[in-house]
Design a binder for these strands. Structure first.
Lengths: 211, 211, 211, 211
DNA sequence: GATGAATGAGGTTTCATTCAT
DNA sequence: TATGAATGAAACCTCATTCAT
């Protein structure tokens, strides 16, 4: 259990600082000079750890993607005999996801709003991750259709609805209406997850058995 | 025999070129030199028409905002005796909105994904417009609650859901999963509007009387 | 006859300063910052006139090459009935060439010694020009062989000898033994040309009719 | 079971790698990082062996100079009763020299073309060695003049001719017209030496008794 | 209304060199 | 003897912006 090597600390600091700055200002507005100033090292040190500013971001995105997809795929146990079972499943799954997002708000900021348009490679990294999220949701809906729990109608389209509902709501939850990085959620994880699940299956009209 | 291309024409060209470039590359990646190159004028000409690159964008956003809000507020005739009436209303309103978005895809690209993180003033312009859209939706839901057509429950939250569902779905519709500016919609305006309205009120479970 | 435009003056200054610096320090040691300092303009001005430092040099080399080849090809009137006629022809031709070299010593410095190893494109530019010079000399020898004035023996090899004798002697003449850019020729153009021509045809042993 | 590669081995490797790189790319384009990468050691190791990159090169040049001068001075046995004796002597001497150059082509690359303009100290090292070579040649000619074998005319100038003819021809022989480090000689050592010696004393016109 | 030419500030990246271990 | 990690100085180049004409 040897103590963490200095280099690793510096490297982690650089990643953290880069993440924070890019989340709040975007890629182009974030200068290497500012990243290193926050870490108390020189710019040359940055380039010892990373081949370029772009590579730092791509590494950032890749590691965020890995942990996010991990979370996404863990969920959805399959006992679904009724629509209400599906609501329950969705609710649990959303809860896990929201916790992840809450704990990784800076990564989510880049993924959901501050990333596009920075650089083609970053665009791709974001699009890939978002598409992966869509695929998971689409898979779940398709399975429910196969089991006869949902009507076999416009699966892709409705998966896109759920996907965008979910992403957009997370963005709103974490950053508010004006995309403020300092915004604090006004709703608890549990309430949001439940309301989202209700809305997902019953829309504004509700289930009929709501309180 | 130069045709009399007056100042207004140049100005409009600059705005159009700026809009196209920013929509596809983002604010920082869009250079004044590129904008003017597309218009066949010099950079100094740009600065005769606009005080700065930022001002061009802000003007862009303001004019987009005006026409968008115009469209948004035109809708929603008030005869709502049943939920199905509301679905019909939503459907008509969505249709108008989608038409606008389709006709202004570059502005929507900036508004929905390529704008944040460019500059605090741009961020504000975007946030304001998006919030205005949310307010319209929230107002409609609140009215339905007042009229006893919807349950008086979590109005803000559910307005946020609808708002993000709508925005996100438009983004997907216009630009696909990987935010490709060249993407072509795979669903017609009418079908998307109807499906959105159905989903808005009944969720994945559907209305029961769907085809 | 309008007075020379400012821009052209600046551009010429930059070229001249670049030529002088590269001739004396080599390509890599010559900094854009130094070039512009000598011209009293900013670095951005440099990049308004030239796309890059490399392009400045390539332009330099290209224009030097053009005038040099022009000089090279002007020479060699064809009356050669005896070896002594050839010596006379060579002498005149060398005189022209030496005058050019004397008037363009900075370009010659780059071409003959300070250029190689700077950049692949520069290497090519130099090699091309030197090869062109060799070809002219080889052509002359080949013609003399065809006319029966020289023995048909190892033409390529002996052309290479003459070429390198000439280049090397020019280098020595202009820059001395230690390649000093400030060196002043110790021999007049005419004497050098005559001695070179004698050596070219008779070697150290001489013509027998020398003084 | 690491083989005992002691300090001297590492040092020699560094020198060899440096020599190869500088010969092919020039001084400035050769990075310490690249030298050490080829040797499998770190940059800090480099600086344990050498005080600076410049010192490595100077050492390189000094050792090349020592062996070259050794070769140069070994030659020229003094029996010269006729010009043909001198041709024979030159031929033998050139043969030795060409062998050396062939075996040390990387050093010759730096000495003859890739060195100038790198750094004042390197320039000096090169100039000194080349001047030493000139002195040897001049001494031989002077002796021949003293012995009455050559005419007492323009000794310095003609020594310079011979010197530059020799150097330039070696450069051409080793690296071709476009200074390609990979070039293979197209003429054997013996043929080149003989032709050079013939040319040295008789020029293009030849000896009259040539084959 | 527009141009040609220039500025100034700052960006990313490079590279020889050093120092604690 | 050597390494891993860092420094400092400076290089090339970019780009929004300006100004005289």
């Amino acid at each position: 259990m040897k103590e963490p090597r200095d280099a690793q600390v510096t490297r982690d600091n650089l990643i953290r600082a880069g993440l924070a700055l890019i989340a709040s200002q975007g890629y182009h507005a974030t200068k290497v000079s500012e990243i290193v100033r926050r870490c108390g090292v020189t710019q040359a040190a940055f380039y010892w750890h990373f081949p370029s500013k772009l590579e730092l971001v791509l590494e950032l995105m890749a590691s965020g993607r890995a942990t996010l997809l991990d979370t996404l795929r863990r969920g959805y146990r399959d006992r679904i005999e009724s629509v209400d079972d599906m609501v329950e499943n969705s609710c649990r799954w959303f809860t896990d996801l929201l916790r992840y997002c809450h704990d990784n708000r800076e990564y989510m900021a880049i993924l959901l709003a501050r990333g596009y348009g920075a650089d083609p490679q970053i665009d791709r990294a974001i699009a890939d991750t978002r598409t992966a999220m869509y695929e998971v949701l689409r898979g779940n809906i398709a399975r429910a259709v196969d089991l006869g729990r949902l009507q076999p109608q416009a699966t892709d389209l409705r998966a896109a609805f759920v996907h965008r509902l979910l992403e957009g709501s997370i963005e709103w939850w974490l950053f508010g209406h004006d995309y403020d990085l300092q915004h604090q959620p006004t709703v608890s994880t549990e309430v949001l997850a439940r309301q989202l699940a209700e809305f997902e299956f019953y829309g504004l009209n509700g289930s009929g058995n709501a309180g």
